[in-house]
Amino acid sequence: MIEFLQVLILGICLGFVYALMVSGLTLIFGVMRIVNLAHPILIICGAFVSYWLFILIGLDPILSIPIAGLVVAALGVVIYKLIFERNAAQQTYSEMTVLLTFGTAMVIDGILSFVFHNTQRTTSPSYATDAIFIGDIFIPLAQLYSGLVSSVIIVGLAVFLKYSDFGIAIRATSQNRTSAELVGVNVKFVCLISFGIGCALAGAAGALVSFIFSFFPSRHWEWIAIMMSLVVLGGMGSLKGAVIGAIVLSVVSSMVGAFISPAWSTMVFFLSLFLILIIRPKGLFGIQSD
């Protein structure tokens, strides 16, 4: 029972981190219908920013979240301007846009691999190896902190989307681009900013990832499918769905890892993606692409 509770808590903490990892992905999809396969590599970019800040000036990864977010957001805006802006206007050709993001992921992967090589890295702040005990339940601080920080960021994002004018404009644009334009929303600007926010979220997630997982540039291929399974379960384009999907799958995969075999825990994500395909043949996404 105690072991079960412990795995459950760890799964939930990790689930929030996963939710943060996919929140940007689902936001970008909602507004622009771009399935951004480059999102995981952007998370790794964020992780590298935190890693070097930690190594060079000893900055705590949690404190480096804003910097990682800003750096990755800037990178994202550049990518958007160079590659996606002309495609974002026309929502057709979405398959080609997916391949464009795929190409972008390869480009960034290539650069990172070339510069830093594919060695496993992780930041090790003082709490990375610590843990607290609640009764007999043992909770590693790294997971606890990252889960808490993630949930704070996600709540902040949700509040922003729910109550601010710009947030409502983002949601309106994702529902109907033309209608939004007709009430005076500068849709191109909204797209740019949403992409930037999405990438900032990736960067923030990267800072947390840097001390709870070990990371290396090519790892993002594995994350692509994992992250897709999370958003697809909850319905792509919806933040609430992404959080629920992330927590459910994270808990299930932690359970599989703890009680069956760690080797099979990632399989949970991929299999769930396939199961959803079988159950919901209309498409993986809550919002239809066209």
Partner: peptide
Amino acid sequence: GPSYIISSIALLMI
């Protein structure tokens, strides 16, 4: 479309 692309990546990962 995109759903198919993702499912094909998932197949590879499996």
